[in-house]
Simulated assay, not measured.
Amino acid sequence: MSRRARVTPAEAGLPDGGARRRTPGLRREEVAVLAGVGASWYQWLEQGRDISVSPQVLDAVARVLRLSDAERRHLYLLAGLNPPAPEVAPEKRDMCEGLRRLIDTWMPYPAHIMDAYYNCVMYNDAAAVVLGMRPDITQNCLVDFFTDPLYRSRSKSWERNARTVVAQFRAASSARPQDGGYQALLDELTGASPEFARLWAERDIEDAGQIRKELDHPLVGLLCVESTAMKVPARPDLTIVLHTPLDEANTAAKLEWLASPEGRRGAMYPVAG
C-alpha cells in the first residue's frame, strides 16, 4: 500500500481526469489492470493471504509500483519465493570513485576489485608490487592465477590454493547457469591451463571467503597474508579482495617497507623472479 501511494496515475501512464482522489497514488484496481491480474487477487496479495504467486506476476507488480531492485527482492521474500539475483541500480553505477578511495586507504596492504567474471576493475599500488598486477597481463584474476609466470614464481601456496580457487569459480558459475560470460571464461581457462582443466573435472565447490597466501617476494622474502573476498550489496557485480598481513614472517613491516619511498625505489629495478 505504501508503494502504491507513491505512484501517480500520470507516472503509470493513466489519465487522472483532473479529479481529486481520496487517497494518493494508484488504486488497487488500477495496479491490477496494469499488472494484468485480477482485482480480487491483487487485493488478496496486499492482504498477505495464502495464495499462489508466480515470479512473473510479482515482476509485473514490481514494474507497476516502480520498485527498486532491493524492494523487488523484498517482495519475493514477503511472497515466500526465492528472490532473484541482485542487480545494480542505475544510481549506484558511479560508486567506483568511492571504491578506489577504499582500496587506496588499505595501503600498504594489497587490495583489488574484480567484476563477476573475475576481470580486475582496479588495484592499489601494493597489489602491483606484491601480487604482480600490471597492465601487460590479461587483467583477469582467474586467468592470471593459472597463466602468469610472475605470480606463479612468487606464490609458495599456489598448489594448495588452486583447488580452492577453482571450487569457488564453480560455485559462482553454478549460481548463474545461463550466463554466457562464465562459459566463455571456462572455455578460455580450459584451453589455457591443463591444471585448471584437471581441477575443474574434480567438481569441487566452495563459497568465496578467506584464503591464506604465502608469497616469496624478491625484495623482502616470505610474506604471509590472508585474502578476504567481500561483496558490496549496492554493487553485487563487484567483489572487493583485501589482503591482511598475518602475524608471521614480519609481514606487516615488510609490506610497509615495500610501500615506502625506499621500497618503491627498489621495486623499480629488475629483480630475478
Rank of each mutant, 00 (worst) to 15 (best):
L65S: 02
S52G: 14
L67F: 07
L45F: 15
P86T: 09
D59W: 00
P86D: 03
R63L: 10
Y42N: 02
G48M: 08
D50Y: 01
L34T: 05
A70P: 02
V61W: 03
D59G: 13
E46A: 10
W41F: 05
A79N: 03
R73H: 08
E30Q: 03
I51G: 04
Y42I: 04
N82R: 14
I51A: 09
V53Y: 01
R63H: 14
D59R: 14
H74N: 12
S68V: 12
P83A: 09
P55I: 06
L58K: 08
W44L: 10
A70L: 05
G38N: 09
D69P: 03
R49S: 06
W41S: 06
S52K: 13
R63P: 02
A35T: 07
E30T: 01
W44P: 00
P84K: 10
Q43E: 13
V33M: 12
A79R: 03
S52M: 10
V37R: 01
P83Q: 05
E30L: 02
R72T: 15
L45K: 01
G36M: 11
G80Q: 08
V33K: 08
V53W: 00
A32H: 05
Y76V: 04
H74V: 00
L58A: 10
Q56T: 14
H74I: 00
S54W: 03
L78E: 12
A62M: 08
R49Y: 05
E30A: 01
I51Y: 04
S68Q: 09
V61P: 03
W44A: 13
L45N: 00
A70W: 01
L67M: 15
L67P: 08
L77T: 14
Q43K: 11
S52T: 15
Q43W: 08
Y76A: 07
A85T: 13
E30V: 01
N82E: 15
L81Y: 12
S54C: 08
V33D: 13
D59N: 14
Q43H: 04
L65H: 05
G80H: 11
W44S: 08
P86H: 09
E46D: 04
P84I: 09
V64Y: 02
R73F: 07
N82D: 15
E46I: 05
W44E: 10
A35Q: 07
Q56E: 15
V37Y: 02
V31S: 03
G48D: 05
A85M: 08
D69A: 15
P84L: 04
V57S: 12
E46G: 09
A60Q: 13
W44D: 10
H74A: 15
P84S: 05
V64A: 02
L65Q: 03
V64D: 02
P86W: 08
R72N: 12
G80I: 11
A70C: 00
D50M: 02
E46L: 10
D59V: 01
P83E: 04
P55N: 09
A35W: 00
S54E: 06
D69N: 15
G36E: 08
V53L: 15
P83T: 10
V57M: 13
Y42R: 06
V33I: 11
S54D: 06
V61K: 02
R73E: 03
